[in-house]
Write a protein that binds this DNA or RNA. Structure first.
Lengths: 230, 230
DNA sequence: ACCTCTCAGGTTGTCTGAGGAGTTGTCGTG
DNA sequence: CACGACAACTCCTCAGACAACCTGAGAGGT
């Protein structure tokens, strides 16, 4: 359960996830036949067509293979999936927590390594975030993420930059839903402006501890909201 | 559509393949909505259930995403590229640095969240690392990584655990090469035993700051060696 | 003119029932 | 023992019905 976190997940996804876990746990090793559709339907407590669609999803992911007349066979226990779709399945709060861990440390690095160009880019991103205060939630979230991406870029580690980029789609999705759900911008259309400015300032001064602290406080607040919303 | 022509493969697979090709050709760019299931059923000449299963297969592969009441949306035109292969192209020092950032924060989380089972696993991993001191470099590196993986697992965040697992192959490769190159185990076959023990102890005591500090010092030392060796 | 609310139409989600097509193991016969 | 018929399973496909949900247009009030 708790698949979508912010929205109820369809039975098909729950069934697919349940089967995926049981396969990952080794309940049905590679090469073995899964129970029949009608059996699985009774076991999982859903209709037969739902089971079929769940099995199709697993087949699309390369986990199982159906042979007409014979049955459905396990062809891989490890998802062998790409990281982006793994993130899509994970709870938003878990993704956000990891993002927080990564970015807080990235900010400390950025405070030590930022170049004059980085500082210029940071100020531009901060201004863009302010300008986006007039726009819709999605545009504001985009501007916010762009600022954080600029910080990560200032750490000058290509692996770190790519890693953060992987998180962006899922983060964007979750944050837009959160802002909309809690109506975060009802009172202030530009929430967090002060902390973000202080944060950019700390990076510019080369204050690693300060930048990490301010960012952690800011992100932990949002993480708490995500946890309560989920 | 010439779907009925070759009846070798099931209709579902043919329909999924047909849709996959049209998506790859750019007929429906990323973000656009696919025609409705009933429409697709008529154009493809199959029943609605068949279309649904074909769409599920594409969803399992991460190409489309269905939203109840709204439609089925394209989220990728081709299966996303592999993150592991990207890590393989990156410099070992960059990968190791990111690993350090992630794991230091993971250790702080672990100190707050570790269960009695986690503590047991940590002690077992520490003992296994000591036992591996008698073995070859590769086996010792494996035991070392296993201990660090146990710490990350104690943070109880599935995304974090998976993320660390992504790093393991590249880390292992780089560390084995480093140990061999610098002959790190020439004097002491069990280097870092004292710091690792202190580190496990800090996690057990719930000392987040201490665990983070000890781990960071340990990892930074190796990172420095990697930078000089590279 | 603007905003809010309601509602109808369209969309995916889920279940049921029915029959078709293929595979596999059993059993009787030679 | 060899072999063919057969029954019992399996997945495949379709049709229909209803529920849950989203979206945009229009009514109504401010």
């Amino acid at each position: 359960m708790a698949l979508g976190a912010l929205h109820r997940s369809p039975l098909v996804d729950q069934a697919a996830e349940s089967l995926r876990e049981q396969i990952a746990e080794g309940l049905w090793p590679v090469g073995t036949r899964l129970p029949g559709e009608t059996t699985l339907a009774k076991t999982l407590g859903v209709g037969r067509s739902t089971v079929r669609e769940a099995l199709r999803a697993l087949a699309g992911a390369g986990l199982v293979q159906a042979r007409q007349g014979a049955g459905v066979f396990v062809i891989a226990t490890s998802p062998a999936e790409d990281w982006t779709s793994r993130l899509r399945r994970a709870a938003v709060a878990d993704v956000y927590e990891v993002r927080m861990l990564v970015e807080v440390q990235a900010a400390r690095l950025a405070a030590r390594r930022r170049t004059p160009d980085d500082v210029t880019a940071l100020h531009a991103a901060l201004e863009a975030r302010r300008a986006a205060a007039r726009d819709g939630d999605a545009a504001f979230v985009d501007a916010d993420i762009a600022l954080h991406a600029a910080v990560v870029a200032a750490a000058h580690n290509p692996v770190l930059t790519d890693l953060f980029a992987e998180f962006v789609p899922r983060l964007r999705e979750g944050l837009v839903a959160l802002v909309d759900l809690l109506d975060l911008r009802a009172g202030d259309p530009n929430p967090g402006d002060h902390t973000h400015a202080a944060f950019v300032d700390a990076v510019e001064r080369g204050d690693a501890d300060g930048a990490g602290r301010v960012l952690q406080e800011e992100l932990e607040q949002t993480l708490g909201r995500l946890r309560r919303a989920g």
